[in-house]
Structure formats: structure tokens, C-alpha cells
């Protein structure tokens, strides 16, 4: 059976709007953010995301897990970019060295070296701000969209009935998958299985994950077949369907959509005019070069 995210109705800014309006704004925000690498342009996006978050009525306890997980994930990749210097190669050509750290040992003649440059450091910070802003907005979706309205929201965004219902099911599949994973984990732990004690090479480690991966996957497949049968047994797809729930735009929803579209148009225009590309403060470069 499909379970839903931990949504609950609240008096908050995000839930004040029609879900369609919010999804449209979210998509505009997402594509606008992707237009920039300049931290001066990205910071306002982070501010917008934080505004939505802090007015959402969510408590830290509720969102602690996703924030810690996704926050750590984003930080890890930004840090990896900083360490390796890869990823930013496409947006800057020259680098200004601040410090070179060399390991006191060599591995097969290669000495690990970390070059801290102005560009690498700023690229990592920009990348973090960019992805974290999107993450904040994305985390808000399951907590603020009423699961009972998923289908009609997607239908209202112009998707055909079948696709809209498929999207509805997909949204609910993720928490269902998490629940099944937990159940399988419990069942295998009761058989003496300890995930934390898995050892061996990469292939061996993946093989030892079989007791978790196989039941969860099989369960997902069987679950999908059940869903298809249950839908067929209740006349799904016979013709155009009526959606019980109705959504009505209010003036405030048009304002939000207009703001979203304005944001997108401005971002694309700025991007096309060459603004918003990767930027580092000149003062920092001067300091790094001792100028």
C-alpha cells in the first residue's frame, strides 16, 4: 500500500497558495537558479528559498533528517570539487594560487598535493549555495503539498489524466519505498544481518547488500503490479476521468505565477547578456597574487 509524506495542513505562506501556482513558481525558481554561477546572483535565490522555509511552519525536528542528509550530501560534493579542482574547469580558465599543501609522503612516486586557489574556493562556495537553494525548495514540496491533491495538481498543470495519476503514484512511491526498505532491514536484522559489519571489496560489498536490495526491489515490482490490477479493477483508463477535488486560482496565485515567470525571464535575459557568470572578488585575487 502506498504511504504518503508527512504532510499536514498549516497556516503558512507556502500552503496559502494553490499547489499549481506553487509548483509553477518552484519550476521557475529551479531554472532561474541554474542560469547563474555568480554568487552575488545566487545569494538572493538562497534568500528566497530560506524565506519560504522559515515561513513554512515546519519545525527543525520534522525536517532535521532530510536537511542533515541532503545538506551533508551537497556539502560533500562541493568539498570534493574544492579538493579535486574538477567541475569548475568549464567556468574559469585561470587560477590564482593562495597556498599549495603537499603531503610529506609519496604514493608510487606521486605526491598528493592540494592547491588552494581563489577560483576553486569560490566555485565550491557558489556551487554549494546554488544546489542548497534548490534543495531547500525541493524539501518543502513533500511537506507542503497535500497528497490528496497531487493528481489534480498535475492534471491542472496540463498533463493528461493517465500521466497526472502516474505522477501522483510516483510522488507516493518514494516514501513507500523508504518504508519497505525499513521493514526489510528489520526483517534481516532479526536474522543476524548487520549492515554496519559489511566488509570486503566493492563487488563483495554490493553482493552482501543483496538481502536488502532484492526484497525491496521485488516488493516494489509486486506492489506496482498490484496497483495496476487495482486500477484496472476500478475502470481506470476507460475514458476521460472526473477529478473529485477542484482547484481554484485566487488573485494571489496569479501574482505568485507572475513573479515566478518574471524571475525566469529576467534570469534568462541576464544569462543571455553574459551576466551572472562565475565571479570572484578582484580584491581576493590581488591579495592572492600579492598585488
Amino acid at each position: 500500500m502506498l504511504v504518503t509524506w508527512r504532510y499536514r495542513p498549516r497556516k503558512s505562506l507556502v500552503q496559502w497558495f494553490d499547489p499549481r501556482a506553487w509548483v509553477i513558481f518552484y519550476l521557475c525558481f529551479l531554472f532561474s537558479t541554474l542560469a547563474f554561477w555568480d554568487i552575488r546572483f545566487l545569494l538572493p535565490f538562497l534568500a528566497i528559498a530560506l524565506l519560504w522555509l522559515f515561513t513554512s511552519g515546519l519545525t527543525w525536528n520534522e525536517v532535521r533528517r532530510p536537511f542533515l542528509f541532503i545538506g551533508a550530501f551537497v556539502f560533500f560534493f562541493a568539498f570534493l570539487t574544492f579538493l579535486t579542482g574538477r567541475g569548475g574547469m568549464e567556468v574559469y580558465e585561470t587560477e590564482h594560487l593562495i597556498r599549495r599543501l603537499q603531503a610529506p609522503f609519496t604514493i608510487l612516486g606521486w605526491r598528493p598535493t592540494l592547491e588552494i586557489t581563489v577560483e576553486r574556493a569560490f566555485f565550491a562556495i557558489s556551487q554549494f549555495v546554488r544546489v542548497f537553494s534548490i534543495a531547500v525548495m525541493t524539501i518543502l514540496i513533500p511537506y507542503s503539498l497535500n497528497p490528496a491533491l497531487y493528481g489534480v495538481t498535475f492534471k491542472g498543470l496540463g498533463l493528461p489524466d493517465k500521466i497526472a495519476y502516474a505522477m501522483d503514484l510516483t510522488m507516493r512511491f518514494i516514501p513507500t519505498f523508504a518504508r519497505d526498505f525499513q521493514l526489510t532491514m528489520d526483517a534481516q536484522r532479526a536474522r543476524g544481518y548487520e549492515l554496519e559489519k559489511i566488509s570486503g571489496g566493492l563487488v563483495e560489498q554490493v553482493r552482501k547488500l543483496g538481502p536488502l536490495i532484492v526484497p525491496v526491489t521485488i516488493h516494489a515490482i509486486i506492489g506496482s503490479e498490484d496497483i495496476i490490477d487495482a486500477m484496472d479493477l476500478r475502470a481506470f483508463g476507460i475514458g476521460p476521468r472526473t477529478w473529485l477535488q477542484e482547484l481554484h486560482y485566487q488573485p494571489r496565485d496569479y501574482v505568485l505565477i507572475a513573479l515566478g515567470l518574471l524571475l525566469l525571464v529576467c534570469s534568462i535575459t541576464l544569462g543571455l547578456s553574459g551576466l551572472g557568470n562565475f565571479w570572484v572578488p578582484q580584491a581576493l585575487i590581488r591579495w592572492a597574487t600579492g598585488g
Partner: peptide, 19 residues
């Protein structure tokens, strides 16, 4: 068998499909 998130949606599912 249950597909709807809320009881009323679940009970209405077949009727919605019948248009």
C-alpha cells in the same frame, strides 16, 4: 487494493474513472 490517500478519494476512485 487501496489507492487513494484519503478515504473519500479512495471510495470515489472508480466513479472518477467512469467520468
Amino acid at each position: 487494493q487501496i489507492l487513494g490517500t484519503k478515504v473519500i478519494n479512495e471510495v470515489a476512485f472508480g466513479l472518477e474513472n467512469m467520468g
